[in-house]
C-alpha cells in the first residue's frame, strides 16, 4: 500500500473517531444549541424583534437568523476540537496517533473535519429551528456554503490551537468565555455595524467574526456591512495562518512530546 493511501485511511479514521465521539454524546453536543437558539429566536426575534421593526430593509427576525446560525457554527466547531484534543492529551490517548505514522496534516484535518461535521449538523438543526419562526430564502447558496465551511474550519483550527496550549480544563474554557463570546456578540449578529458611530464601526472592522457573520448574511439576504470579497479573503487568510500555526506546533511536539 502506498504512503498516500495509508495516510488517507489514517485521516478517515481520525475523522470517523471524532464524529463517533460527538454523536455518542449527542445530548451534550447537538441538543443544547437547538434549545439555546430557539430561545434566541423567541426572545430576540419574536418578542423584542417585533418592537424593533426592520433592520437593513428586512425584519429583525430575518436579520438575526444568519448571525445566530453562524454563532452556533463558531461555538460548536471550536469547542468540539478544543475539548476532544485536550481530552486526548489529558488521557494520553493522543499517543496512539503520535506513535503511528499518521502525518501531522492528517491529524489536523481529522480533528478539524470532526469539528466541521458537528458545526454543519448544528447549523442544519438551527436553520430548521429558524424556519419555525420565519420564512427565509437564500440569495446566494454558494456564499452560504463557502462562508460556513471557511468559518467552521477556522474555529476548529482555533480550538485545536487552544487544545495544544491548554494545560488544564480551565484553559479550554477561558478563550470561548472571554474572547469568542464577546467577539461574536460584537460581530454584528444582533445589529448592523452601520448603526454604530464611525469610530466604533472602524474598531468593529478589526473583529474577524464581523466578516464571517456578514459573509453568511450576504449569502442569505444578499446584503452585508462589509465587502463580500474582503470577507472571504479575511477568512482565507486567517485559515492559512491558523493551519500553519497548528502544523508548526504539532510538528514541534508542543504540549504532546517531552
Amino acid at each position: 500500500m502506498s504512503n498516500a493511501s495509508a495516510n488517507i485511511i489514517a485521516l478517515k479514521t481520525i475523522w470517523i473517531k471524532e464524529c463517533t465521539r460527538f454523536l455518542r454524546i449527542w445530548v451534550q453536543t447537538l441538543v443544547p444549541p437547538a434549545i439555546t437558539m430557539t430561545l434566541y429566536f423567541v426572545i430576540f426575534g419574536s418578542i423584542v424583534g417585533e418592537r424593533i421593526g426592520t433592520m437593513s430593509g428586512v425584519t429583525y427576525m430575518e436579520f438575526i437568523v444568519p448571525g445566530l446560525i453562524m454563532m452556533s457554527v463558531i461555538t460548536n466547531s471550536y469547542s468540539n476540537v478544543a475539548s476532544s484534543f485536550f481530552s486526548a492529551k489529558f488521557q494520553r490517548n493522543i499517543e496512539e496517533m503520535l506513535v503511528s505514522p499518521v502525518p501531522t496534516w492528517a491529524i489536523i484535518l481529522g480533528y478539524v473535519g470532526g469539528g466541521m461535521a458537528r458545526a454543519m449538523i448544528v447549523a442544519v438543526i438551527v436553520t430548521f429551528v429558524s424556519f419555525m419562526f420565519v420564512d427565509i430564502s437564500i440569495a446566494h447558496i454558494g456564499y452560504v456554503i463557502l462562508t460556513v465551511v471557511l468559518t467552521s474550519t477556522l474555529f476548529a483550527l482555533g480550538g485545536l490551537l487552544n487544545g495544544v496550549f491548554g494545560k488544564t480544563f480551565d484553559d479550554i474554557s477561558i478563550v470561548p468565555t472571554f474572547v469568542l463570546t464577546p467577539l461574536t456578540y460584537l460581530g454584528g449578529v444582533f445589529y448592523s455595524v452601520s448603526l454604530l458611530p464611525e469610530f466604533w464601526q472602524n474598531v468593529s472592522m478589526a473583529n474577524p467574526i464581523l466578516y464571517m457573520v456578514n459573509g453568511f448574511r450576504y449569502g442569505f439576504l444578499g446584503q452585508s456591512d462589509v465587502g463580500i470579497a474582503t470577507a472571504m479573503w479575511v477568512l482565507i487568510a486567517f485559515n492559512v495562518v491558523f493551519f500553519s500555526g497548528a502544523y508548526y506546533l504539532l510538528e514541534k511536539g508542543k504540549g504532546i512530546r517531552s
Binding site: I9, T13, Q91, R92, E96, P101
Partner: peptide, 28 residues
C-alpha cells in the same frame, strides 16, 4: 505497549483496536 493505560476509556474495545490499525493505514 506503554506502562500507563492510554486509550480512550469511553471507546469500545473494538473501536480502540480498529482505530489504531487505521492510524497505520490498515484498511477498515
Amino acid at each position: 505497549v506503554p506502562q500507563e493505560f492510554n486509550f480512550n476509556q469511553f471507546e469500545t474495545v473494538r473501536q480502540i483496536v480498529v482505530n489504531q490499525a487505521g492510524y497505520y493505514g490498515v484498511p477498515r
